[in-house]
Design a binder for these strands. Sequence first.
DNA 1: ACGGACCGACCGACCGGTCGGATCGCTGAC
DNA 2: GTCAGCGATCCGACCGGTCGGTCGGTCCGT
Lengths: 213, 213
Amino acid sequence: MAGSKGVQGRQAEIMHAAAQLFNDRGFHETSMEDVAAAVGIKKPSLYHHVKSKAQIVGWIHDECVRTVLPPLMGYLEEDIPASEVLRRVAMDIFGLLDSHPGYLRVYFENHRDLDARSKTRITKKRDEYYDAVRRTLQRGNESGELVVENPNLAAMAFFGMCNWGYQWYQADGPESAAEVGEYVWSIYTAGVLAPGTSRLLDGAATAAAVQSA
Amino acid sequence: MAGSKGVQGRQAEIMHAAAQLFNDRGFHETSMEDVAAAVGIKKPSLYHHVKSKAQIVGWIHDECVRTVLPPLMGYLEEDIPASEVLRRVAMDIFGLLDSHPGYLRVYFENHRDLDARSKTRITKKRDEYYDAVRRTLQRGNESGELVVENPNLAAMAFFGMCNWGYQWYQADGPESAAEVGEYVWSIYTAGVLAPGTSRLLDGAATAAAVQSA
DNA sequence: ACGGACCGACCGACCGGTCGGATCGCTGAC
DNA sequence: GTCAGCGATCCGACCGGTCGGTCGGTCCGT
């Protein structure tokens, strides 16, 4: 149901314009008249293509999920290290920020503006995505590849690094999405501490373990 | 100006109730009548204590900045390793999530609902905070304590880990704010990769570097 | 009597959404 | 060739409702 091909044609155009506006001005500060104007028509005409404002939000959410969830499910079936899965996830998320500017802000900040049915559907998908990453971390820990004491918190930390991009990543910035994804992933896996510095340092004892060229 | 002591008394009560409501229902879905009801009065009475809805948002923003910026400025004047500064920043941010539930959501999602004057004031403070962390990373890199190729991206990754907490951290969750802050910091500094695994690994070659109790 | 806290009633603006009708491009019968 | 018919697209005008904010006045402690 809901068509696995996603929104197309004029509706896709509307979705795209709306995502830009919602991102730039905010969802509630953007009227349906603004959205209509952005695609060159008037409000009543817009309602010929769209059932409600909430429906547009639903499209945007679906587009986000459609873009990143199936790839992740594919990675899980390949026989690759957990860290490689994480790397691809990071790349996918920044790739989404790059190819769909504005979409992730709507996804993260306007979940409650979905109609009830879409909300449960999207929430389920969101949990699937979250769970897949958590299980990946758990698997990495069990195989000895990773050290993950708390897969739940570790997943949140990972998503934080990636998802926070919606607050600062600019598609026309100095770094490409792939570069950013790769860099963020490298910090998550290897940390920023210079090699040779003790892994188990507590705050007070840190002052001693400083220099190592 | 604006009083360095922050909002107090009845106004603080209003600010607190509003932050909760804005967090739970959303800013635009919360009417001034709702805020008034939350403190046990009617809307016209609320306007006896408050100039506008935007003013409440301003209070909440100021409260966030007031809570975390001065401490960070203090850390910079102490002679401690960069990683220790980062650790304290992480603790401060999760501490804020703990002591001021809802505030950070308003801070991150309702910046544009500030009046023009507050917006410039808060933006400046936000940039100060960001810059302090970036400079800390740079200093850590120069001293050899850290390996930070891109301080700007590294700062964003760090803030991502911490700030994203507003999306998931619950004050009544299983882990305390201090535990979460410490854990997130440990991932950021040391990474999740098991020690012994090559730092410069590409995805395919990782599978070999596995066990180490 | 004075000021701080409070409230019922109200206003203007805006916004999501609707209605009835106009226009346009295509199809097919003749 | 042309023209009736039709569905898709478009729009001016309008509605119901909500919300931020105001006004005039009451109540109460001092």
